[in-house]
Write a protein that binds this DNA or RNA. Structure first.
Lengths: 149, 149
DNA sequence: TTGGGTGCAAACTCTTTGCATGCCC
DNA sequence: GGGCATGCAAAGAGTTTGCACCCAA
């Protein structure tokens, strides 16, 4: 786990350098958070987590880091429909999950399914666009919010 | 097609009345646009289309209509990652599609796939949430934006 | 007549941009 | 030293809310 975090953080740092970006404290802190987290985080999540560990940085730097990482395909953009955009690290091992969200309380959980990925891969061949990425979101109610059903 | 539009519009009108909502010109106009459109539209899209046919209505009424229709499950919320929320009619025949978006020019196209739906249905049984709806978005480049590949 | 429907404008939230300052290379 | 990285504040965009007025039931 810690290994996977470091792996991605180092990969990202290398790619950023190769792309001509310099080093900076704010972006390094964002990399650190993204690398350690298993699932998607918003800019506010990142800022809050960093503030708690006394590494407060400006929100603009976080958005700028997200944009650069997104450009280099080091993160995936995740939208679950609550008006905010989240990002998560794209691990080099290709591991990859999607999200279920509770429309009542907003709770987000990851899930993975190989049959679903195969179906997506087949469809991606079929459409007229060149498909680089896909996002799947299941909407519903978590156990706490729909105990009766 | 015109039949399918009317079917949904009437269904929606009935359900709204049954839910205790009164009739109103603004919401009726929104229903009309949603019923006729095949694919997802944003609040601005709806307002612009109505303005062109000299039925200008306030943007707030459109958002309010979206919310009520969403509550009654008469529309699906669609987010393709461009910062706006789109909605589309949920036809009573269960017909149902997803979206491919060109991240370069923003073009959105619908697609449908039964194998994918089966995979989604299976996953939905497996997760710990009660799943009511799902959304799939493929990201990539349309032919005009990625001609070489 | 009554209470929901509507439009306008203000408020809000999230995100982006401009600019002065600071730091990496 | 040069130029990107950063932070702050202002600007933007989309969406929501408050309120007075209008209209359906």
């Amino acid at each position: 786990m810690a290994g996977a975090a470091h792996e991605w953080i180092e990969l990202a740092a290398q790619r950023l350098q190769a792309a001509g970006y310099r080093r900076g404290g704010a972006r390094d802190a964002v990399l650190d958070v993204l690398g350690r987290r298993e699932c998607a985080v918003s800019a506010l999540d990142v800022q809050e987590e960093l503030r708690r560990s006394d590494r407060a940085i400006g929100i603009a730097s976080i958005y700028r880091a997200f944009e650069q990482l997104s450009e280099l395909r080091l993160v995936s953009r995740v939208e679950v429909g609550d008006g905010t955009t989240r990002f998560e690290a794209r691990r080099p091992d290709g591991h990859h999950h999607h999200h279920v969200i509770c429309d009542t309380c907003g709770k987000v959980e990851p899930f993975a399914d190989t049959a679903l990925e195969r179906a997506i891969a087949r469809v991606s061949e079929r459409v007229s666009f060149r498909v680089d990425e896909h996002e799947i979101v299941l909407h519903g109610s978590c156990r706490a919010c729909a105990p009766a059903s």
